[in-house]
Structures are given as C-alpha cells and as structure tokens.
C-alpha cells in the first residue's frame, strides 16, 4: 500500500482539528454561567458605574445640618408641650398634633421591627452589576416592608416620610436627595415576624439579590429600636388645605 495515499486520504484531520479547537474556544466563551443571567435589566445607564465608587464626602456637612434640624424640631415640640400645659382643650389639641406628627414621620418613634442590611458583594469577579446594591433594590425592599405592614421605615437613618424619593444619580444612590453609600441599613418598625416573612418570600425581593451573593442581604429581628424623625425639608409651595376641609 502506498503510504502517501493514506496521508492524502486523511488530509481532513488536520484542518478539522484546528477549527475544532477554535470551536471549543468559542463554546467556552459562549458558556452560560450564573453570572451571565443578570439583573442588568433593572439597572440603567450610569448606574452600572456605581460599583466601587469612592467614599461620600458630603456626609459630614449633612450630619451637621441634620443635627441642627433635629434640634429645632425638638425645640418646637417643647413649645408645643408648653402650649399643651396651659389647658385641657389645648392639651387635646396637642395630643392630636403629636399623633399627626408621628403619622408624618416628624417625631422619633420606637418599637420592635427588623433591620435589613444590604451591601455590595465582596466576592469580586462575575457580573459587576449584580454585585452592587442599586436604588431599585432599596425601592423594592422599602415597598415590600410597607406592604407587610411596617409603620415606620428609615434607610441609613433617613426616615421614609411623605415625598421621600429613592433614586440613582450618576453612580450614587440618593435618598431624599442625600447621597448614601452601601452598606445600606433599612430599619423598619412593625411585627418582626411578618416583616421577616415578607422579605424572605420565595422569589421575593431579597431572593434575587441573594442569588448573586447570599451575603449581600441580611435580616435581623430587633425587639426594640428607635427611628429618628424625618429631618428634611417640609416646606410646601403649592398644596393648600382645601377650604371646605378646614
């Protein structure tokens, strides 16, 4: 038998093998991993750059101002109390006022509840968008907590009062126009068991975050905690109490 004949007859082996190697390369590149199924759909635009953003330098100034606000609010409460001391009718009025203030998140409240801590994953590698906490994560947790019957919620110490927004500007999360940085601590007053159950629902808000990295979301049941009053602006320009409702 002619040895060259066998060589020419199997000349397909080399090119096929080489391209087969290329194919193997491509297949690995296309391999679907857990990280490639992403929560990207929720994040948009510059949000994705938020990973690893630096420290927030407005913190100090903010703390200063909010201290001042709480001081003034406390003074106001004192004045109201003094007013209440004057007579029984004004006392009743004052009680109603305090009740309204609590409803509006303008007074400190305390009670049992849960503490939810959301933080960026420290795992590294994988899909970066999934490993950061985003504004929509906060929104959904807060929403779920309200739904589960939370009576007061604070995100990193900022009370969720009427008109408080959670959004994302550039690469930072803003709560009521104040920049916050992970870890985000959401504290809610309500029945701890119910709140915990609502957050841990299968397919619920936290399950998605936990699917990226279980350490990103932790819940703690608290027997007693105190939430500070809302200390942002309460000025209003347009809304007036309707005349016939007074």
């Amino acid at each position: 038998m002619n040895p060259f004949n066998t060589v020419t007859r199997q000349n397909w082996v080399l090119p096929v093998s080489i391209l087969s190697m290329v194919l193997g390369f491509m297949m690995t590149a296309a391999w679907v991993t857990k990280e490639s199924r992403s929560r990207l759909n929720y994040a948009s635009g510059t949000q994705q750059d938020r990973v690893g953003s630096g420290t927030i330098d407005f913190q100090e100034k903010y703390d200063q101002l909010s201290d001042e606000v709480s001081k003034l609010r406390a003074e106001k409460t004192k004045l109201e109390r003094a007013l209440g001391d004057q007579g029984s009718s004004s006392k009743a009025l004052n009680e109603a006022l305090q009740e309204m203030k609590m409803q509006a998140a303008l007074s400190d409240v305390e009670g049992p509840g849960v503490t939810v801590t959301l933080k960026d994953s420290a795992k590294g590698g994988g899909f970066e968008v999934d490993q950061a906490i985003h504004d929509f994560d906060l929104l959904r947790v807060v929403n779920e907590l309200w739904n589960a019957g939370a009576e007061a919620i604070a995100v990193n110490g900022h009370r969720m009062a009427i008109g408080v927004s959670i959004r994302c500007v550039g690469s930072v999360i803003m709560v009521d126009n104040i920049r916050i940085a992970p870890p985000v601590v959401i504290r809610a007053i309500g029945d701890p068991q119910t709140l915990n159950g609502a957050l841990n629902l299968p397919g619920g808000v936290l399950s998605e975050i936990r699917s990226s990295d279980p350490t990103m979301a932790t819940i703690e049941l608290v027997r007693k905690m105190r939430l500070q009053a809302y200390n942002g602006s309460t000025a209003h320009k347009y809304a007036l109490v309707a005349k016939d409702a007074k």
């Binding site: 082996v13 093998s17 080489i18 190697m21 297949m27 590149a29």
Partner: peptide
Amino acid sequence: FIPIVALFIGSAIAFIIIGPQKGIVGQYLA
C-alpha cells in the same frame, strides 16, 4: 477522535485566557 480532543483543548485554552463572556455577545457567540 483527534478533532474531539482538539475541541477540548480549545475550550481549555479559552477557559484559561478569557472565561465565559457576559451578556448579549455571549448569546450571539452561542
């Protein structure tokens, strides 16, 4: 068997060098 072995060699190389690609490019690549 030679092409099959080559397939695995290629995927091993890719695994070492780049790893699985993310997102939409990975889908087209599939």
